[in-house]
Amino acid sequence: MFRTLAVAGVLTVATVTAAAATLNAHAAVNAGPVVAAATPTTPPGQYPNPGVVTGATRTHDPSVVKTPSGGYIVAQTGDNLPLSTSADRTAFRAAGAVFPNGAAWTTAYTGGSRNLWAPDISYRNGRYYLYYSASTFGSNRSAIFLATSTTGASGSWTHQGLVIESFSADNYNAIDPNLTVDTAGRWWLNFGSSWSGIKQIPLDAATGKRSGTTIRSLAGRGGGAIEAPTLVRHGSHYYLWVSFDFCCRGASSTYRVMVGRSTSPNGPFTDRNGVALTAGGGTQVLAGHGSIHGPGHQTVITDADADVLFYHYYADSGTSYLGVNLIGYDSAGWPFVY
């Protein structure tokens, strides 16, 4: 989720007001429009509409996990981190919030607000892990926390504490977390928004908390807008999905989904043309088209039928909704959506 329309790290009051109003409008999860599904024959380089979803599809910064029983849980930005569920990846229903009684430990970072950002939900070792961020617009005085649950249900989550925080003197922003477990069983937390870009820290697999002091740089645009990392392995590569440009402007949002890849979870990541993501590179996979505005803050899961891309987009009305598309890979191993 974009918080830093930064010129030397400065956010205008008008932009903050507009972005906050947009986000508050999206915090509740409501039924959205039904958009015609694209066909699997959509060629690479053309952008399909989202697949058909129904019910509680009003969302922002969705993160999705498949449950052991075969259903889906969606965690998203909003007051106390709203949840929704689906049995079939098509029909969704509201399912309460992660912290229905609030999360008092976050308010020092949110200015007292209950609005928490950009959760990352996954299922590991018999329980659900939820990394999420607390901050205010335009500030990198931010924090990422961890909660765990054995069921994923509203109110079942246990606060596990702070994972990493950032301060105004730092050149990064501790928001937009994403957990990756590599083929060697090592845990990594990817995070970041604007400033100097996307970062990565090692985690202790036993606790899910930070291990050591190393911070790697995975991607950046020289201060330009980049955020929402999602690092997923497919085949012999790790694909780093990010969002470029601006969220939270309703139908004027310019978010777009980009990707790079590496044979290592630590990079270096390059795009299709060989440009390093740390040098502003990125191969575009999805962008606004027609009545689909600013698709981004993506998450990727591997499902029984395909890899699946979840994201939010804005309708002409300025309301944000859940987008779902399948992912294909061309002969060179680069992803496209259909």
Rank of each mutant, 00 (worst) to 15 (best):
H297A: 15
G55T: 07
A28H: 13
K199W: 00
L23V: 15
T254V: 10
S168D: 07
R141N: 15
F99R: 04
A225I: 09
R114A: 14
S139L: 01
L309A: 14
V257A: 06
N49A: 12
I73L: 09
G296S: 02
R233K: 15
K66H: 02
V232C: 06
K209C: 01
Y314P: 04
G111D: 13
P268E: 01
Y329Q: 06
T110E: 09
Y47S: 12
A18P: 07
A14H: 07
G208S: 04
T22F: 15
G55S: 08
T22D: 15
G323N: 07
T54S: 06
N178P: 04
D303R: 11
I201E: 10
T110Q: 11
S262K: 03
G212E: 01
R216L: 14
R272C: 01
M258L: 11
R93W: 10
T151L: 02
F145R: 11
R233D: 01
G333P: 12
S196G: 08
A169N: 12
P50H: 07
R124M: 03
H312W: 00
Y123D: 04
S331R: 01
V285S: 03
S331D: 09
A8R: 14
V259A: 13
A95T: 07
V10G: 02
A153Y: 08
G208M: 02
